[in-house]
Design a protein around this nucleic acid. Structure first.
Lengths: 146, 146
DNA sequence: GTAATACCTAAACCTGACTTTAGGTCAAGG
DNA sequence: CCTTGACCTAAAGTCAGGTTTAGGTATTAC
């Protein structure tokens, strides 16, 4: 069992954030001894899941719903699975669209690298898209695909 | 040249957002005829870059800085390149951490899939980590790696 | 015993990124 | 003419996700 300060340290979060999460209902079964929060393994695992779901773009209120399902027991297994499946799909498409943005960045890095080596904008634009070098061409096309 | 309404339609954004971007200085050279904004190719390309930089996690005020550099001409090529390089690195690490979260989701999907098929939590926990099936094992390890 | 810590609460505050509102201009159509 | 629709502005409102503040308790260290 850990105090809020120890957990804050472990996860690199301010204690105020943990109190905020608690207030939002993200630790439904959290115990206290004389008013002081006691974080156990359940809460640590919950926090790991919270960090994951946040990265997956989920809002606090939806994470709370999930935590409530967990507290309700096995009858909610199907809902929990469905929520993870939905998040997985969402996240896969999010990562894909980030990769397209990343290709734009790669192209821009190359482009400004060329400009810094003295090539003119006009020269470079003449290369688009067929005269672009290996790798950059793919990034360019990816970035500009709809 | 396009009106704000046409651009809004093209990019699937509300016109209010475009006005907001303009007010934040994201279109430094934007022309007007008798008060009405006229969006040209420069602004359309700017918008594409804005969408990319936003996805890369950049704040409006930093995007403005970039747009100001663009308006200043070739003397700012090095700063612009540095900004893109920094964003590229940031985004690569962001995507990596999202992939770790995705592995957690994959594992959880499998886990709840098993539970829905009648396996008990105790049975499943006994499989961690060496009895996990192909693919799931990797996801589990990835998700729990520090 | 008293001072420093670590914990607690409720409530106010903050930030970024928009969105909405309220009021106004201008051109075209009936 | 007068109404409709597309544009304009400044200013206020909204929302999520915290953070800060102000005031209080409880334990440990000297």
């Amino acid at each position: 069992m850990y105090t809020i300060g120890q957990v804050a340290e472990m996860f690199g979060l301010p204690a105020s954030t943990l109190r905020y999460y608690d207030k939002q209902g993200l630790f439904p079964g959290l115990e206290r001894t004389s008013g002081i929060r006691r974080f156990g393994d359940t809460e640590l695992e919950a926090l790991r899941v919270i960090e994951c779901l946040k990265k997956a773009g989920m809002e606090i209120k939806d994470i709370r719903l999930f935590m409530e399902w967990c507290a309700e027991g096995p009858s909610t297994y199907p809902q929990r699975k469905a929520m993870f499946e939905e998040r997985k799909a969402h996240m896969e498409s999010e990562i894909e669209s980030m990769n397209r943005a990343l290709d734009m960045l790669k192209f821009k890095c190359w482009y400004y690298g060329q400009l810094n080596q003295g090539n003119s904008e006009a020269e470079l634009k003449a290369l688009i898209p067929d005269g672009l070098p290996e790798g950059i061409k793919e990034a360019y096309e990816n970035a500009h695909a709809r």
